[in-house]
């Protein structure tokens, strides 16, 4: 039996816009992945603990409120603390171009803005999941 890619799709903070997260969940499922969806209003600690228990290969963070710097930084710190170096982190939402290099520096592997075809996200995950 082949190994299944497991993805945690998480909504950090108070942002309630979940259209994108849910569309991505379904697309990843249809691409044969196992998708764990956290639901809304997650703290950084909840997301990292969930990722750890679920042994996911990928964490996908969706945020449209503009609070991405704070949350992605917190999550990335916690992941380092728990030595989760083999987990791919991707982000999506309303994220200005100029924040992307800063996000990459703190360990976010890729950022997908509005208008990204979901197939691009599927392809990126398949090609970049860490062994």
């Amino acid at each position: 039996m082949e190994k299944k890619i497991r993805v945690l799709v998480a909504k950090p903070g108070l942002d309630g816009h979940d259209r994108g997260a849910k569309v991505v969940c379904r697309a990843l499922r249809d691409a044969g992945m196992e998708v764990i969806y956290t639901g809304l209003h997650q703290t950084a600690e909840q997301i990292v603990n969930t990722a750890l228990q679920e042994d996911v290969d990928v964490i996908g963070l969706s945020l449209l409120s503009g609070a991405h710097m704070t949350f992605f930084t917190d999550i990335s710190h916690l992941m380092k603390k728990k030595k989760m170096t083999d987990v791919l982190v991707v982000g999506g939402g309303i994220i200005p171009e100029e924040d992307v290099p800063r996000l990459k520096k703190i360990g976010v592997n890729a950022v997908f803005g509005p208008g990204t075809p979901v197939n691009d996200i599927v392809r990126y995950i398949r090609e970049n999941v860490k062994e």
């Binding site: 903070g13 108070l14 209003h41 703290t43 409120s65 503009g66 704070t70």
Partner: peptide, 10 residues
């Protein structure tokens, strides 16, 4: 505490 990072953002 839950307002952390969210102030004035949207």
């Amino acid at each position: 505490p839950l307002a952390r990072g969210e102030f004035g953002k949207c």
